[in-house]
């Protein structure tokens, strides 16, 4: 089987005072070996929750209501947490968390932070762990001597490189990157993207790139998955989703909202706001903001319609 990851009918809800927040509400997709998939959505779309579910790192008030996650063919949600950590965390699937570059331990040398999982999870000697950590530091484009630096001595871009080195030190096959560049200047962002592209190629990694920025997604991803209100609204190859006309009105409007450096188009905006996921609107979740809304959209929830080769969209415009 060539799928590195298969997600089936996943539902993840948060318990809150106002009731259950349906952050991820019936999501299915797969990721092939060596493939990169961008998950694109605005705040509250469920994209980060999805990432945290895959590495079994959900906060205490969140729970998996239903669904299955297969990594290399094995269902991993049913494994005990300790089993999962021992066999999968870092060594098979790892994640660069959003804002992780600001959560490095300030009193530990960054090199020791990279070496840590090797010693405690990998059963590697201190000497060997240091050597491998230095290799990783070099791999992400920093001098080996940076092993001995503390986080405050590094710039944001350098810390982001360190965090990427940490995520790769156990040689995982699947890497999840959650908004790895959103806090960085565009110049540094471009450098980090070049680094990620380089790493994908060298290690034939399977990558999930979580971002709110469609333009960034197009820079990395073979396929693009657009999320809205906890659901997939469109999924297909980058060429199909961005190249031709997008097939879901939300993708279309999101694309139209990007300020461009060239061309005459003026960016548009999507009126209204994302749905409240404690009580999402009936029918299509995007219908209150959709310019093409018609009667059926208000009543019935659309399924994902096949709109092309490997390309689906959750919109009644493609219904019979």
């Amino acid at each position: 089987m060539s799928e590195a990851l298969v997600v089936e009918e996943l539902k993840v809800y948060y318990r809150t005072e106002k009731g259950a927040v349906r952050a991820v509400d019936g999501v299915s997709f797969s990721l092939a070996r060596g493939e990169s998939l961008a998950i694109v959505g605005e705040s509250g779309s469920g994209k980060s929750t999805l990432g945290l579910t895959l590495i079994r790192a959900l906060p205490a008030n969140a729970s998996v209501v239903s669904g299955r996650v297969y990594i290399n063919g094995e269902e991993t949600l049913s494994l005990s947490l300790s089993d999962f950590r021992r066999r999968y965390s870092w060594r098979v699937i790892s994640m660069v968390f959003q804002g992780a570059m600001n959560s490095l331990n300030p009193v530990l040398k960054v090199g020791d932070q990279i070496a840590e999982p090797l010693i405690y999870n990998g059963g590697v000697s201190r000497e060997e762990a240091r050597r491998r950590a230095m290799e990783m530091i070099e791999l992400v484009g920093l001098p080996r001597e940076f092993y001995y630096r503390y986080p405050h001595e590094l710039s944001g871009g350098m810390r982001q490189r360190i965090v990427i080195a940490m995520s790769l030190v156990m040689n995982p096959r699947i890497l999840i990157l959650d908004e790895p560049t959103s806090a960085l200047d565009v110049t540094i962002q471009a450098q980090i993207l070049n680094l990620v592209k380089d790493l994908i190629e060298r290690f034939s990694l399977s990558v999930i790139f979580i971002t709110h920025d469609l333009a960034l997604a197009s820079d990395i991803a073979d396929r693009i998955m657009v999320m809205y209100g906890g659901q997939i609204v469109e999924l297909g190859s980058a060429e199909r989703v961005l190249g031709e006309a997008p097939k879901h009105p939300y993708t279309e409007k999101l694309l139209a909202s990007i300020p461009r450096l060239r061309g005459e188009t003026i960016p548009e905006f999507i009126p209204g706001r994302p749905p409240d996921l404690t009580s999402p609107p009936p029918g299509c979740r995007f219908h209150p903001r959709c310019p093409y809304v018609f009667d059926r959209c208000r009543r019935e929830e659309p399924p994902l319609f096949k709109v092309g080769e490997g390309h689906v969209a959750r919109c009644w415009l493609h219904g019979e």
Binding site: S218, D219, I220, E239, L242, L261
Partner: peptide, 11 residues
Amino acid sequence: SVPEPDPANRR
């Protein structure tokens, strides 16, 4: 450095 949503730029 500014990314544009064009899949031709991929990788």
